[in-house]
Design a protein around this nucleic acid. Sequence first.
DNA 1: CGCGGTGTTGAGACCTGTCAAGACGTGTGG
DNA 2: CCACACGTCTTGACAGGTCTCAACACCGCG
Lengths: 239, 239
Amino acid sequence: MIERHLMKLRARDDISAEEERVIRGLVSHMVTVPADRTFVRAGEELKESTLLLDGWMARAKDLPTGERQIAEIHVAGDFMDLHGFTLKRLDHDVVSISQSTLAIVPHERVKDLTERYPHLVRMYWFMTNIDAAIQRESTVSLGRRDALSRMAQLFCELLVRLETVGLASDNRYAFPLTQAEVAECLGLTPVHVNRTLQELRRMNLIEVRDWHVDILDLERLTDVAQFDPAYLYLEKRER
Amino acid sequence: MIERHLMKLRARDDISAEEERVIRGLVSHMVTVPADRTFVRAGEELKESTLLLDGWMARAKDLPTGERQIAEIHVAGDFMDLHGFTLKRLDHDVVSISQSTLAIVPHERVKDLTERYPHLVRMYWFMTNIDAAIQRESTVSLGRRDALSRMAQLFCELLVRLETVGLASDNRYAFPLTQAEVAECLGLTPVHVNRTLQELRRMNLIEVRDWHVDILDLERLTDVAQFDPAYLYLEKRER
DNA sequence: CGCGGTGTTGAGACCTGTCAAGACGTGTGG
DNA sequence: CCACACGTCTTGACAGGTCTCAACACCGCG
């Protein structure tokens, strides 16, 4: 199931057969997490990182008020807390949204990478930089776009990211988030998410039903979102 | 003037004399930028990265509406577009706020680092991850905190970051941003920044005058901001 | 001395939040 | 098979934080 991760990498640069072997060798074991669990807690000492093979998870920060902000959604193929390798502990939780399958990668093996596989290190450094770019785009959304636009942007981004790993087709993909969780992503209240979703539907841009998203008019949705996928760096080139 | 950069690194891990020599050798030349210029434009092909030696700069994203969101403020010691080494182009502009002095680092020298200096690569990877953490905290602010809290958070963060590089003392630091620029950081309008600043002043928490910030009551300001510097990773340990 | 950038203030509008109630759907236990 | 509980979604009325627009004050600088 690590294929999704390889797809994600190979969308940005060539990965040789030997490198693929090295990547597969990073994984020490696999783990399954039920939905709605905190898998890594902020502040915990880390000795390993986690690759999401299947399911949906997220980076979330709790506030003293009990509210939560989701900083980034993770889908299959994402190396969710690779940044924990250098940080040694995280400033956010890693939580499961749906039931998920994870591959565990001991930090010592990543360290070995830094000593023996420069190209793979650049690739993985690059991957954490893409995460930062995604976060940056989200900052822009929260700072300067209204609810409609933010939500459109979220659905556009997920479409592209899921297509990259083969989890979206015909502008349609599985979407396990509740409206309350969408609210935590977009800095809104669940009530307002509900109303905004209805508006997107009334505009015939999107349909969310049965835990699936159907994008009915991608062009207009992209417009509403002011979405430009450049920040996802989907160009194959030497890194 | 690269000392500020070394201070920033050494606040997180030991840097040997030899490593210091290597770091100094990264710089090919220096450059001065006037205030209010776009130094790197989003999308441009990059062949070098930029270390901020003196002055204030920022990562900014323009919107079709002509608005701008500042994703991160940079102060002396920051390797502003180190992530450009793996990304090859940026998804945001790098702009000067005040007149600034920069050290230019060719990407080939960074690439050389990835092949010969594993520890320094981990350090620089780490540094880009801290930037991501700063951005993440800002996402939380924009998503879940009101104007007063966001602004308090900004001033707390800058105090800690500036202390790390020796640019703040007695809870006071130079602060060259206009209220309009603060608005671009916090996702507010200049008018509202003005009013919020007045409220912070009325609460005797902070004073902004003559392009300096004076924090009058750090403890209460920290409270208002819900500020916890953990996300700045100011612990010295092996990386 | 006038000009442009910056900061300040007021009144009203608007987007989003709050609170509360009810509908819907699914899984569980009797 | 029904009753119930719980999570999720939906709706309405109202409140409130922030924005918009506009005018004016201040100040350094040419």
